[in-house]
Nucleic acid binder design. Structure first.
Length: 154
DNA sequence: GCCAACGTTGGC
DNA sequence: GCCAACGTTGGC
């Protein structure tokens, strides 16, 4: 099993939105970056756990945990001319973008802020805390996962 | 809202 | 294949 961190803007789709989807979860669609795509398509697997990260908000940080309930499949929004994430260069025969299905697992009592994470020496290898990083999907090591879970308030 | 960082596009 | 122009991300 692997661990991940997925970013999302709470104004667009936050952890409460995922919670509201209930058991069936939500396709993690709209990712349009090749590095992130490759991870979603090749490495993110059913059963993996995800830190849900809120970006572009007052206090950016990890707000809870989600789980992958289905391996990635072609992202339907790339084929829909009406969709924000429509990609005219993609085709049904040769889809370019993929999304796994994810489901809400838990929400932390308080956000583990980016600011806090940056101050922890054990987490300096995380892409998240490195300057200029814009990846919206990134791997989290088992050690990092457990360390961060240890910061969660009861 | 600003802007640094970085990815993508397209002319050559 | 280079690289300038442009677009997007995301912290602040």
């Amino acid at each position: 099993m692997s661990y991940w961190l997925f970013k999302s803007e709470p104004d667009t789709f936050g952890i409460d939105d995922l919670k509201a989807r209930g058991k069936k979860g939500e396709p993690w669609d709209g990712v349009r970056n090749y590095q992130a795509r490759n991870m979603l398509r090749d490495d993110v697997k059913k059963g993996d756990l995800i830190f849900f990260y809120h970006s572009n908000t007052k206090v950016p940080g990890i707000v809870g945990v989600a789980e992958v309930i289905k391996d990635a499949f072609p992202d339907p929004t790339q084929f829909d001319p009406e969709a924000k994430y429509y990609d005219p260069k993609s085709s049904q025969d040769n889809p370019r973008w993929f999304c796994p299905q994810v489901r809400f697992k838990s929400k932390f009592k308080s956000t583990i802020s980016l600011d806090e994470l940056k101050q922890i020496p054990a987490l300096q290898d995380m892409a998240l805390v490195r300057k200029g990083n814009r990846l919206s999907v990134m791997p989290v090591s088992e050690d990092q996962w457990h360390f961060i879970m240890g910061m969660v308030q009861e």
